[in-house]
Design a binder for these strands. Structure first.
Length: 578
DNA sequence: TAGAATCGCCAC
DNA sequence: AAACGTGGCGATTCTA
């Protein structure tokens, strides 16, 4: 294998001359670790036309002369899991990227929700049938380089160009080029979002946790006492028997012992049996506190980066099969939605947080794709959707809609996108199943087009084993066509995926537009939660940034929704708020 | 006994 | 048997 090692300024300048002539480059890095704030880039590998260059970054103070290459809209940069290299190169060298092809994202797009691994080794084997040896990947890249290390480093960039070509064929064949470009563009935003991170006020957070801990232990005592008092099982030690409240097995047994016979201890079951004993309410409250303490609690503080003082969560750009993000270390998408918790996520001194979310985006998408005249009209009116739905359903003027009617209409509206049935609706709104059925029928008389679309979407998913969003994002379904339960599930997924996935399309489009708009400013993208985008902006720019954010989110929505108005709610605050 | 599986619950 | 879509995560329980 022939390659050129670049280890002095002369070499680097000659390389630049060559790179400027290229249309496509494959790029990879080898680093001393995984955390971009604590790791150094050892090697930067660049390949094109069977030519490979290995830059020993330890020989250079900066890589400024290469910046125009990475930032060039005319040179395509091919990477696998581009976010990793982009973050490393940006933090270490201030290198900005534009125009990328991420073979990992491409592989995920083609897999279309089917469980497959997307590390380079597996993807290369799947698409090219080549076995890559990755044993050097975790070797020590901070010392003198071995021949084996260099040849490994080159192998990775060598394989990227044929891999990209193969993946591109698949993308074209499956009409996935549009969504791929969307994801590649969005990857740049996600990289910045992870670099920026968000600020969590440690003391404020600890105060909350302390309060919760007190409530938690008090409640725990009360429940334990109650359980042992009523237990007809005597302790051998004549002491009261403590059970592990977090063990649902033990809890169920204890409840049965005191005459509360339940099938399980699921929240649903407990809620339905609240009237049997006051302890049940307490158990539910205990559970909620337990969840807060274990899932968030002090654990989240361990994610504060010592260098930046901020939390840099990891976003999986195509984390869900529908195209939604997922998030971990920590999961910022499941922070309790109450102000107590969220207000600890703050803007740093001199800054404001700007929180913007799409108003009822999924229902607007449903209106768009179903084309239902009445549903669209409801949004065009600008009135409260649930109220206007109730008014339509019960054939009464808006002002006569009662709270109960509105709440019933609201439950149906939200249940729609999940393929919810009558029995589950009945449970929520506290009516008989028969009544719930009638309400749904009435609903679909008003919004007939919605019913037709939902029915078809479910059937189509089962018939074709796939569904699409408005960006043409694909979701494939694998199921046993003899299994009724599975078919019912695919039916619901077929209804939900195009909606949930289009929402993801829109948010990703917005993330791209926003990041582009705020490039080289002090306004930073710091978080996103499905239909919500959060920026941190210096005080003096906050008003203006908020306006731009709103505009760009609407612009992104407009690309997909042509018939239905889009509304974005924006708030400027010192902390994360609704 | 470590890792897998399951339950339960937080978000949208 | 269940009947509501998408995730991550922690504690308990199961399993090899």
């Amino acid at each position: 294998m022939s390659y050129k090692l670049i280890n002095n300024q002369d070499n680097l300048e000659s390389l630049l001359e060559l790179l400027l002539l290229q249309k496509e480059l494959s790029i990879d890095t080898e680093t001393t670790g995984l955390d971009p704030y604590y790791s150094k880039v050892r090697l930067l590998q660049i390949g094109f036309d069977e030519q490979f260059f290995v830059i020993d970054c330890f020989c250079f103070e900066n890589l400024d002369i290469l910046k125009p290459i990475f930032n060039s809209p005319d040179i395509l940069k091919i990477l696998h899991n581009a976010k990793f290299d982009i973050k490393m190169l940006k933090i270490n060298y201030g290198i900005e990227f534009q125009n990328i092809f991420d073979t990992m994202l491409a592989s995920q797009i083609i897999s279309a929700g089917v469980n497959e691994t997307h590390n380079l080794k597996d993807v290369v084997y799947r698409y090219l049938g080549i076995e890559l040896d990755k044993t050097e990947q975790k070797s020590d890249w901070s010392k003198e380089l071995s021949v084996s290390q260099i040849s490994y480093a080159i192998k990775d960039v060598e394989v990227l160009i044929p891999l990209k070509n193969k993946l591109k064929e698949f993308l074209v064949e499956n009409k996935l080029v549009r969504v791929a470009v969307l994801e590649f563009n969005c990857c740049l935003s996600v990289s910045d979002m992870e670099i920026n991170g968000c600020f969590l006020d440690k003391n404020k957070w600890l105060d909350i946790i302390e309060k919760v801990e007190k409530k938690h232990s008090k409640l725990s005592d009360e429940i334990q006492k109650e359980l042992s008092k009523n237990s007809n099982q005597l302790s051998l030690f004549n002491d009261f028997l403590e059970i592990n409240l977090n063990s649902n097995q033990q809890l169920l047994e204890s409840l049965n012992n005191m005459g509360i016979n339940l099938d399980d201890t699921a929240e649903r079951t407990l809620s339905l049996n609240k009237n049997k004993h006051e302890i049940i309410e307490k158990i539910l409250e205990y559970r909620s506190l337990q969840k807060s303490l274990s899932s968030y609690g002090k654990n989240i503080l361990e994610h504060i980066n010592k260098k930046t003082g901020r939390i840099h969560a990891s976003f999986n750009q195509i984390g869900a099969g529908t195209g939604r993000f997922s998030c971990f270390n920590p999961n910022l998408q499941q922070i309790p939605a109450n102000e107590e918790y969220r207000s600890s996520f703050m803007a740093e001194k001199g800054n404001k947080l700007i929180t913007a979310d799409y108003s009822q985006i999924e229902l607007r998408i449903l209106a768009e794709i179903s084309g239902d005249k009445e549903f669209i009209r409801a949004f065009e009116s600008g009135e409260d959707l649930h109220k206007i739905t109730a008014s339509n359903m019960f054939s009464i003027p808006l002002e006569n809609v009662t709270k109960e009617m509105r709440s019933q209409a609201k439950s149906i509206n939200f249940g729609l996108v999940y393929g919810r049935g009558a029995s589950s609706l009945a449970e929520q709104i506290g009516t008989s199943v028969e009544e719930a059925k009638k309400l749904i029928e009435k609903y679909f008389e008003i919004y007939e087009g919605v019913k037709i679309w939902l029915d078809n979407a479910g059937k189509l998913a089962i018939k074709t084993s796939q569904s699409r969003t408005l960006s043409n994002r694909l979701k494939k379904y694998i199921f046993d066509s003899n299994n009724r339960k599975e078919i019912a599930s695919i039916d619901r997924q077929g209804k939900n995926s195009p909606i949930q996935g289009t929402s993801a399309d829109i948010t990703k489009q917005a993330l791209f537009l926003i990041n582009k708009e705020f490039k080289n400013t002090k306004t930073k993208l710091i978080n996103t939660v499905h239909d919500e985008i959060i920026l941190e902006s210096p005080l003096e720019f906050a008003e203006n940034s908020a306006k731009i954010l709103e505009q760009k989110m609407i612009e992104a929505g407009r690309i997909y929704l042509k018939k239905v108005p889009i509304v974005v709610d924006v708030h400027i605050s010192d902390f994360w708020s609704k």
